[in-house]
Computed example of a mutant assay.
Amino acid sequence: MSYENQYGNQYAGLAGRTAVVTGAASGIGEAVAVLLAASGARVALLARRGDRLEAVVEKIRADGGEALAVVADVTDGASVDAAAARIRAAYGNVDLVVNNAGVMLANPVDDGRIDEWQRMIDTNVTGVLRVIRAFTGDLLGAAAEGHAADLVNVSSVGAHLTLPHFAVYSATKAALTHLSQSLRTEFGPRDVRVTNVEPGLTETELATHLDNAELTGRLDGMFAELGVLSAAEIADVVAYATSRPRHVNLRQIMVLPTRQA
């Protein structure tokens, strides 16, 4: 079913906008990029896997959308800055940023996996800050000119849950949720919306990052018992929030399968 047949003009507010989506090579990031482009936005897709990015961009262009593949690593400040420069050269300033890149690793804290902790902090927290730093001027400029300007951070329901062996992952997502809340006090008065999206059980590649067979089995059991959201369903939420009139901020959205308490 085509976008027009399924959604009509629901996302008309996205037409003509310029978006950046991180972690866009798969999962939620890919789905968000595809839907934003189908809604008329120019979309720059950022991720480390160039081959996957090119495949998604080809799909978008085949459907009549406008997209740019930009290989970048959010854990590397120079890489993010170079990506921002390339995007501006191609599309001009950005008015919609979706921070989706993330990693979920889990092991008992007493295993002392500092490598995993550092990777999650570098990606889920500092990586987000690098992207925000790169595009804050664009967002504030768009808002000052009277245009819609959006910063969307994809956090997790894990920001609020206490799960054995997911302590550090949950802590990074709690930091992201609180960062979003605090940023509203700085950006909101200048007409930049900050939306924090917290998905529950969702079909993405995150679970494949785990190297603990027991935890993988536990997640599989939760998926079977509680059900799972698709990446496209999370993309629908992002597109809806960012296509509202510019004075309307859907600030905090938790999206769960109905059976997930």
Rank of each mutant, 00 (worst) to 15 (best):
Y3P: 00
E4R: 15
E4C: 10
N5F: 08
G8H: 03
G8Q: 05
N9I: 00
Q10T: 08
A15C: 03
G16I: 10
V20L: 14
G23C: 09
A24N: 10
G27T: 09
E30C: 04
A37G: 05
A41Q: 06
L45P: 06
L46G: 01
A47F: 09
R48W: 04
D51F: 07
L53S: 05
E54N: 15
E54D: 15
V56Q: 03
V56H: 08
E58I: 07
R61M: 08
R61Y: 01
A62P: 14
D63Y: 00
E66K: 09
A69M: 08
A72P: 08
G77V: 13
G77N: 11
G77D: 13
A78C: 09
S79M: 12
V80M: 07
D81I: 10
D81N: 15
A83W: 02
I87W: 07
A89S: 14
A90K: 11
A90H: 07
N93F: 00
V94R: 02
L96Y: 02
V97P: 06
V97Y: 01
N99C: 12
N100T: 13
A101N: 15
V103N: 03
M104H: 04
L105S: 02
L105P: 01
A106W: 05
N107G: 08
V109G: 04
G112E: 06
D115S: 01
W117L: 13
Q118K: 09
M120C: 05
M120I: 05
M120A: 05
I121T: 14
I121D: 13
I121S: 12
T126N: 11
G127Q: 03
L129E: 15
L129C: 14
V131M: 04
V131E: 06
I132Y: 03
R133W: 00
R133N: 07
T136A: 09
E145T: 12
G146Y: 11
G146W: 09
H147R: 15
A149E: 02
D150K: 01
L151T: 06
L151E: 06
V152M: 00
V152Q: 03
S155G: 05
S156F: 12
T162K: 05
T162H: 00
H165C: 12
K173C: 03
H178G: 04
L179P: 08
S182M: 10
F187Q: 02
F187H: 05
D191N: 02
E198Y: 06
T202C: 12
T204N: 12
L210A: 09
D211M: 05
N212Y: 12
A213I: 14
L215P: 06
R218F: 07
G221S: 07
M222C: 11
G227S: 05
V228L: 10
S230R: 10
S230G: 11
A231W: 10
A232K: 01
A232G: 09
E233P: 01
V237P: 00
V238S: 02
V238Q: 01
A241P: 01
L250E: 07
L250R: 01
Q252V: 14
Q252S: 14
M254T: 14
V255W: 05
L256R: 15
T258W: 15
R259I: 00
R259W: 07
R259C: 03
Q260D: 04
